[in-house]
């Protein structure tokens, strides 16, 4: 006569039960689903190449330049080293623009003193390019196009002639480009540029401060001092 089977014991609590393995796996999967854990990693910063420029001589008319396009230029790297003295209140920005060798947020002096970050800080860039970078006039017209200012060829000649000159800390001569008193024809522009250009046969270095008119006005003396603090070491002329 067959004896009745002994009462069942819960197999899941046996010491060697596969339940523990499965439970462990399930727990690991559930823990793996936790998504509030931060990720910490190191990455090499991506440096996109500068956009290719159309070949051929730049057109002399206002059309394409007024639209803010880049003049024909060599974006090839130039073997110079540019350093500067960073003004108080400016913070270094991470820039996706590979042509920039320096990118800063120029915080409004009032906010800088309060230790707060200016959400509408003036954008200051330092760019170095080989050769004449498409020419002085072309680049000034490009800047004008970016803020909606238009100027005829004769006025532009006069503007360049009248522009204030300065010397960098390393002795190169440069000129300031002050568009803060230039208004677009329809008077609707909300941004302006104050900058400096240092040009030699081998290279051109641009300093450009762009932002709201009142803020750029306030940054003018600081941008001036910054431009004068440039120290450019590179190929001998």
């Amino acid at each position: 006569m067959r004896s009745p089977p002994p009462p069942l014991k819960n197999p899941f609590f046996r010491p060697k039960s596969p339940f523990y393995g499965l439970a462990g796996l399930g727990l690991a999967l559930l823990l793996g689903c936790q998504d509030t854990q931060p990720r910490v990693y190191t990455e090499v910063a991506f440096k996109p190449l500068a956009a290719s420029m159309p070949n051929g001589p730049m057109s002399g008319g206002m059309g394409p330049m007024a639209a803010g396009g880049m003049p024909a230029m060599s974006a090839a790297p130039v073997d110079i080293k540019v350093t500067w003295k960073l003004p108080e209140g400016w913070t270094t920005k991470d820039s996706a623009n590979a042509m920039r060798i320096g990118s800063f947020a120029a915080t409004d002096p009032d906010l800088a003193n309060s230790g707060e970050i200016d959400p509408n800080a003036v954008d200051v860039s330092v760019v170095q390019l080989a050769g004449d970078a498409g020419g002085l006039k072309a680049n000034i017209m490009r800047w004008m196009g970016q803020v909606g200012v238009k100027m005829g060829p004769e006025d532009l000649e006069a503007f360049i002639k009248a522009a204030a000159r300065f010397k960098t800390a390393s002795g190169q001569e440069g000129m300031f480009v002050d568009l803060t008193d230039k208004l677009s024809g329809d008077m609707t522009q909300d941004k302006t540029i104050y900058g400096a250009i240092v040009q030699t046969k081998e290279y051109t270095v641009f300093v450009k401060a762009m932002g709201e008119m009142a803020k750029v006005q306030r940054q003018k003396p600081i941008v001036k001092a910054f431009s004068q603090s440039l120290r450019i070491e590179g190929p001998k002329s």
Binding site: D35, T36, Q37, P38, R39, V40, Y41, T42, E43, V44, A45, D94
Partner: peptide
Amino acid sequence: AKGDTNSVFAYDATALKPGSQLDLGP
């Protein structure tokens, strides 16, 4: 930014629930 490298501390968007508090460890 440390030279050419960035030391990154990041939270996935799935952790960004309104009201949640997230420590920026470093």
